[in-house]
């Protein structure tokens, strides 16, 4: 009986160990990393559109609403596994050429801010997918991994046709990958998390 129990325990342990290492499969990892970059690319496209004054305010809000859904808990309160506490929502670090400090604001507020920027026109462009740097996914709980995607974002603000502010910021977005074990096999869900500003410099 004891032997059977030991055998069962070791089989269970082995199974758990093997399945928890699924993201180490090069093929699976590659596909998940691609998905993470696609989501970040989508985010950047939405940010660019939500600040674009060629759209009216209602239209810019569509982009903001869609952007929220790319993030963990749709930018609302969630349990942060790494911080081991409940937090009010994902955050975005905001920088300026004219300010040394980095401001951290809730992503949902950042999007509203982008929709209502006071410039007469805004142009935001970001690195294409091929240029993004993706880290190796790291396990943070039994069925959750995290990786980061790094890219550059250029911002130009215009007033009456004249560029009055320009900068380029290197940003890093956290991407959470949840694994759901189903009868048909493992399924993955990719959601974006907090975004850090690594460096800001003038953009010529």
């Amino acid at each position: 009986m004891k032997r059977i129990a030991l055998l069962l325990i070791s089989v269970l342990a082995l199974t758990t160990m093997l399945s928890a290492q699924d993201l180490n499969s090069p093929k699976v990892k590659s596909q998940i990393q691609i998905r993470a970059t696609q989501k970040v690319d989508q985010l950047n496209s939405n940010i660019s559109s939500m600040a674009d004054k060629d759209y009216n305010r209602d239209e810019r809000m569509y982009f903001a609403k869609a952007a929220k859904k790319l993030f963990i808990a749709n930018c609302e309160d969630f349990y942060d596994y790494e911080a081991r506490k409940n937090v009010k929502g994902v955050t975005m670090e905001v920088t300026s050429r004219y300010r040394k400090s980095v401001n951290k604001i809730l992503m949902r507020n950042y999007f509203t801010h982008m929709v209502d920027l006071k410039y007469t026109d805004v142009e935001i462009t970001s690195s294409d997918i091929a240029s993004m740097k993706v880290s190796n996914p790291q396990r943070i709980s039994e069925n959750t991994f995290v990786c980061t995607v790094q890219f550059d974002q250029a911002f130009v603000g215009y007033r009456d046709g004249r560029a009055v502010y320009k900068d380029i910021t290197t940003k890093r977005v956290k991407c959470y990958i949840d694994i759901e074990r189903t009868e048909a096999g493992d399924e993955y869900i990719v959601r974006l998390g907090n975004t850090s500003a690594i460096a800001t410099k003038p953009y010529n």
């Binding site: 699976v28 596909q31 691609i34 998905r35 696609q38 569509y62 869609a66 493992d186 993955y188 990719v190």
Partner: peptide, 29 residues
């Protein structure tokens, strides 16, 4: 709505229909 990898049949993402359709409607990517 399940998003499948280009190679094989790995489910790389899952969304509810509202999120999926909203994403399609607002993307240019």
């Amino acid at each position: 709505v399940r998003n499948i990898s280009q190679d094989g049949n790995i489910v790389v993402d899952k969304e509810d229909p509202e999120t999926f359709l909203g994403r399609l409607a607002t993307t240019n990517r």
